[in-house]
Design a protein around this nucleic acid. Structure first.
Lengths: 195, 195
DNA sequence: AAACTAACTGAACATATGTTCAGAAAAAAG
DNA sequence: CTTTTTTCTGAACATATGTTCAGTTAGTTT
């Protein structure tokens, strides 16, 4: 046997990425073998190497894809007037966007140590760009006199950490809707930075 | 060769745990081999099995030890009067305690998925106990009228997530002292739950 | 229909893994 | 000093790992 019926790189490629994403998120990068990924796709391990140079490149590509999708989605959000409404939009966007792709988010936060030094620097720089978007809002709010924040860098990281905490407990279909969760978190963030 | 000079279980046992803790935190449980741990201690891999039944038990024991130390340390804190001062003590305690043992904390949050179902339940239950301590304070504050919190369970998780974020960026000897960091976070938490 | 290309198999390679255990040496007990 | 116990070695076991590649077939082009 060799090439299988209906095989096509436009299909197999994405399927490999989806399987890898799910498995890495579930068991961790180091605990997942290339054979497991291949088996999930219905293919032999060797076939994966038509789509990635090696295992680490696959991880890096997934993380990079997630980060650039995130940046793009945020930049597509309409820009705003005052800092308060910008902050609300950021909070709601962040929660909603992250809850819709928990596996990618999980990997982007948990598997950094499995990246080579060079790949790590790339991902960290992208994350820095996203954090800067929030910090710019906080700085604007301080300038406007709407926020009272001793250190905008720390506040940025604190807000993001708090929002990311949603993913540890929220499950769709629970007792709260995503809209309600957004509102609860927005309430806390708003008060935390208030003047 | 067999037993080495000066070998003693009272010394080797802790050294194995220390090496495993550091290596698991640095590279992840799945990425660290028993031979690496043994080599760090200066012993052959087989010797580790005098101190642990298997690799998973070693991880579980480290996590369990951390969680019970944490609970004990919190219970040793003097109890307090009003909710506001209790919350301040919790925030400062949490930041300080966690910053002093980053490896153990990191493992306890990152390696949950490498636990068996049974061991996972045990650790999660201990974590729940710690979270309940914070939620009790928040509930007290609501009862006193000092706090305004729509959902104390969510607020509990949000506060802890925010505080845990410290560990992703704080390094001793940086531009801020631990005391200053505590104060900045306490300021945000206080405002976030304020009535 | 023939020639070409893209996609995949299956086996192989070298190496790493967790774990077990008989035996040896150091330490402790008598 | 002799015996017993504790602690460790070194080799072995079965299995798993990431990766390569010659060969084979499905799909595409001419």
């Amino acid at each position: 046997m060799a090439r299988t019926q209906g095989s096509h790189s436009d299909i197999t490629g994405p399927r490999i990425r989806e399987a890898a994403l799910r498995l890495f998120a579930q068991h961790g990068f180091a605990a997942v073998s290339m054979r497991q990924i291949a088996s999930e796709v219905g293919v032999q391990a060797g076939a994966l190497y038509n789509y990635t140079a090696d295992k680490q490149s696959l991880l890096f590509s997934l993380m990079q894809g997630h980060m650039s999708d995130l940046m793009e989605a945020w930049q597509a959000e309409p820009s705003t007037g005052n800092a308060l409404s910008a902050l609300e939009r950021f909070v709601r966007f962040h929660i909603r966007y992250h809850m819709e792709r928990p596996d990618a988010v999980f990997i982007a936060y948990m598997e950094l140590r499995n990246l080579s030094e060079e790949n790590f620097a790339t991902i960290e720089s992208m994350r820095g760009g996203y954090e800067n978007a929030l910090e710019a809002i906080l700085k604007q709010g301080v300038a406007e006199g709407a926020f009272q924040i001793p250190d905008t860098k720390i506040a940025t990281l604190a807000v993001i950490a708090m929002l990311n905490g949603v993913m540890t407990w929220y499950r769709a279909g629970g007792r709260l809707s995503l809209e309600e969760v957004e509102t609860i978190y927005w309430d806390m963030v708003r008060k935390a930075v208030a003047a």
